[in-house]
Write a protein that binds this DNA or RNA. Structure first.
Lengths: 334, 334
DNA sequence: TTGTACGCGTTATCAT
DNA sequence: ATGATAACGCGTACAA
């Protein structure tokens, strides 16, 4: 493999000059520059980033950790990140935590060893101890968290305002005439799901609507058990006229549970999801939901990281995105 | 940042010995080994992979190129790849081609510059000129292609037998009593979609069923135009009793087009998709489809690459996976 | 079993 | 505008 040494030999120039050419240094005459480029083309020269990284301390690598790449929300975010960072000449390396703190720590460690210039991550569900993360931050490696962020003080983060989103969703159901709502809650270990529940409850309280132990429900994802549970719930409370679920998957699942019970959506019961997952607009009835702006989130997180990479000191920013309602058939008649 | 030099100083050993410890060389006594590990822990030593890579020529980095990460099929494959490779201590770096040959070539180039130990990729739709790829293969970098593979002779590849899959799907529709089938075809630039069409046609021919210019249809994805087209088609051919679509998305889309036309699925018209996308089992009616084994594909591709990495010469293997029918409501009554 | 010394391909600091 | 040379942190042949 040809290196700058070979080019130097071929052109009769020194290593330093050749190196300067590839680093766009202004201190080279156009003639020599051309001469070097020509030789490089002829010899099919490819710079060795490993060597450059070792010498300069900049690897041009950004590490990204997500719970699962195989999850539309995260893959959309990765899409945004890849787009933005590759545009600036960075390579992105991906690791999955599978919601395990151990895997997360291992991935973080390998990023450190790879001398990643920066790290973007969304926490594993399990993670409650942030010491690994803090030790990485101490090494002055810029980090930006998205969606699932640790409770640390000086931090870079991009999150959705889940509370407001849930509140807007619930308010919409109320506007549509619902008065007896149920919330299907997500895993309460994650603050995003907690906030969605809180936003829901807030809206109910503002309207002085009763909140009972049946108001909040968690799915078991055992179709038979859930069907029985929902059926019993509706027998006890035939007045129920709407559900707000923590996510679109849960909403679609609920639709399937409701199907054999022969309730009409939206005339008898209205359904509201969260996430604006791609299938939500394709199923029947089309699901009303809350858009979480995953593309924007990825782009913003990448941008925030870039800002930190450009300076020599780290600046901390917290960005909170506003969700947006996407109203479709499951909450609106006609 | 502490390096082996610091550890050598602290322990009074030489650089070489310390290095040997971290490379699991058998030529170190257990006592010194422990002494080194202890010091490493105390100093929070992290090996510098860039330096190791430069010296050894092995970067422990695998490049992966897919058209879009934000596509359930590819993200599932990436999931499999990440799982497998990280397990062997490799880092995977991701690039998207967005089906552009130019982006693909750029990504490939940056992998070469990063000295990636191996490359896994699925071709961009556009790509017809394989010279970039061949020049990479000449550099003796192991490459494995999956799903969308170039027509080159000695090659590593993992693909699904789309032809057989389509044939099986069509046969199933015929078994269910269909005699007037339509195929909604995918982009014929891609061999996978071509093969699905061919498999469909083969099955029709085997049953001596007529093939007209209406037998194959392409979607415009303009809901209004497609609705009109399908409606006219059904008026001209009221005998149509089934559709086989190139993919699940197309199938779901078709279901939406069919909805206002008030045809019952599956009693009047049966629908068969391809892909076993996660939503296919969640919509109403649940879509019968063909599983493409994306997880297996990712795992196998990664495994094939690993085999090539373990030897010092490249071995070429072509693996063809057999698809599997997933029968659900859209083709079966009751 | 351990140590010495050189080189991997590049960038950075001087000097010219 | 260009050249000579020392690092960057690690791996390994060779010597001890």
């Amino acid at each position: 493999m040809a290196g700058i040494k070979d080019i130097a030999k071929k052109t009769g120039l020194s290593l330093a000059t050749v190196s300067r050419v590839f680093n766009n240094s202004p201190l080279v005459s156009p003639k020599t520059r051309e001469k070097v480029f020509k030789a490089a083309r002829e010899m099919d020269y490819q710079p060795n980033m490993m060597a450059a990284a070792l010498r300069s301390g900049k690897s041009k690598i950004i590490g990204v950790i997500v719970p699962e790449v195989n999850n539309p929300f995260f893959s959309s975010i990765i899409n945004g990140i890849e787009l933005q960072l590759r545009h600036f000449g960075y390579n992105i390396i991906i690791a999955q935590s599978h919601d395990s703190t151990e895997d997360e720590a291992k991935a973080l460690e390998s990023f450190v060893q790879l001398k990643a210039d920066g790290i973007l991550m969304s926490l594993a569900k399990e993670t409650t101890d942030f010491s690994y993360i803090q030790s990485v931050m101490k090494k002055e490696i810029p980090m930006v968290f998205f969606d699932r962020v640790p409770e640390l003080d000086p931090i870079n983060s991009v999150v959705l305002n889940d509370f407001i989103g849930a509140h807007m969703a619930t308010q919409h159901l109320l506007d549509q005439g619902c008065r007896n709502l149920i919330h299907i809650a997500g895993d309460q270990h994650l603050s995003i799901f907690k906030q969605r529940k809180e936003g829901f409850l807030k809206a109910l309280k503002e309207h002085h609507l009763p909140i009972t132990k049946d108001t909040i429900l968690e799915l078991t994802w055992d179709m038979i058990r859930d069907t029985v549970a929902i059926k019993n719930l509706l027998l006890r409370h035939p007045e129920v006229d709407g559900f707000f679920t923590y996510g679109d998957e849960g909403c679609l699942y609920l639709m399937n549970v409701l199907k054999p019970l022969k309730v009409d959506i939206p005339s008898q019961i209205k359904l509201m999801g969260f996430g604006n997952t791609d299938f939500s607009g394709l199923v029947d009835p089309k699901i009303s939901t809350v858009d979480q702006k995953c593309n924007e989130m990825g782009l913003l997180a990448a941008e925030m990281l870039m800002k930190n990479l450009k300076r020599n000191h780290i600046v901390f920013t917290q960005e909170v995105l506003s969700p947006q309602l996407v109203l479709r058939e499951s909450t609106q008649e006609g």
